[in-house]
Amino acid sequence: MSLHLADHWVWDHWIADDGEQYHLFFLRASRALHDPHRRHFRASLGHAVSPDGRAWSLRPDAIVHSDGPAFDDKAIWTGSTVVRPDGSLRVFYTGVSHAERGMVQRIGWADSHDGTTFERATTEPLEADGRWYEKWHPALPWDEAWRDPFVFHHEGAWHMLVTARVAGVEHKRGGVVGHAVSEDLDHWEVLPPLSGPSAFGQLEVCQSRCVDGEHLLVFSCGDDMQAEPGPGGVWVATGQSPLGPWDVDGARYVRPEHLYAGQLLQDREGRWVFTGFNNIVDGTFVGTLPDPLPWEDVELIAPR
């Protein structure tokens, strides 16, 4: 699955399988920016397809920032993709806007009926609910976390897991798994978080997976957002169901440690594989996608 673009950095990514083709979606930004830190507010959503998940053919970008004013007129960030019963694709994604200098994150969606061209289908973006989640205001030195929607079907409803933060908690302990639910993928109700404050200030790009009967929450958090900084970027917590509860404080980190925004995926043959983007190696941001690792070859390390 490796992907290395000479002219663009690529980082957070995910895969959808429509039964005929695998669809790879990935954040991308031009290497002409020179400083990789600048990539976040220049990000668009790239797209590639493959019949076997190995050799990828680039397609036009799935989503780029919209013309303003709009919730997504500054940059497009991470999400997930659902294959609907009619075979069409719905991409859920994070948008940030110029209006708040990119400090407020909201969730939108776009549809494709041909697997190539995506049209926005959001009437109103999904926002964090201040009853349960921290809202941004200019006095705060950090952003309003409401990003990385992971959408899946469970017990007759669609569920969305969201990277979120609760108010009134020390910044590096306030990360939670936000939650929303829908019957039709169009109308969403924001619910209380599925996890509480822990040793992590953010649970980025979280996924709920069941591997060999074990419920797992996969998420990412670097040492800059850990209450007790240490090694590890991608983390795995065990749980009791697809909706938790999970033992987040008991999470173990993934080795190799240079991977970030980890994804646990099952291929058509039923094999579970792990992937993430090549992040920092020898002090330099890489911004490429490696080949997936068989899940059984991934080491899970308990923090000290």
Results as ranks from 00 to 15, higher is better:
Val181Cys: 03
Gly178Ala: 02
Arg39Lys: 13
Pro60Ile: 12
Glu204Asn: 01
Asp223Thr: 13
Arg28Met: 08
Ala139Glu: 14
Glu257Tyr: 05
Glu155Ile: 08
Thr284Gln: 15
Glu257Thr: 15
Leu45Gly: 06
Leu185Cys: 06
Phe118Tyr: 14
Leu140Gln: 13
Pro192Asp: 09
Arg252Asn: 10
Arg271Thr: 13
Gly270Asn: 09
Ala29Asp: 05
Ile15Asn: 02
Trp142Val: 11
Leu45His: 07
Ser112Leu: 06
Pro256Met: 04
Phe26Val: 01
Asn278Ala: 12
Ala70His: 13
Ala157Tyr: 06
Glu296Val: 00
Met103Glu: 13
Asp114Asn: 12
Pro256His: 09
Leu300Asp: 07
Asp86His: 04
Ser195Ala: 02
Pro60Met: 10
Trp246Asp: 00
Tyr253Arg: 11
Pro192His: 07
Thr78Cys: 01
Asp114Arg: 10
Gly108Ala: 07
Trp77Ser: 04
Ser30Arg: 08
Asp7Thr: 12
Ala55Ser: 14
Leu216Ala: 05
Leu265His: 15
His159Arg: 11
Ser80Gln: 03
Asp247Ala: 05
Met225Glu: 15
His137Leu: 13
Ala227Met: 08
Phe150Pro: 02
Arg38Tyr: 02
Asp129Gln: 06
His65Phe: 15
Pro125Asp: 05
Arg38Thr: 09
Ala32His: 11
Leu3Lys: 09
Glu204Arg: 02
Gly46His: 10
Pro193Met: 02
Asp7Gly: 10
Ala139Gly: 14
Gly175Ile: 05
Gly156Phe: 02
Arg106Glu: 10
Phe277Arg: 06
Gly230Ile: 12
Leu289Tyr: 08
Thr94Gly: 06
Glu127Trp: 13
Asn279Arg: 14
Leu45Lys: 13
Ala55His: 15
Leu140Ile: 04
Asp52Glu: 12
Val151Tyr: 02
Ala75Ser: 14
Gly213Pro: 00
Asp186His: 14
Asp61Phe: 14
His65Arg: 15
Lys135Trp: 07
Glu20Ile: 01
Met225Ala: 15
Gln240Arg: 14
Leu289Phe: 07
Pro36Thr: 01
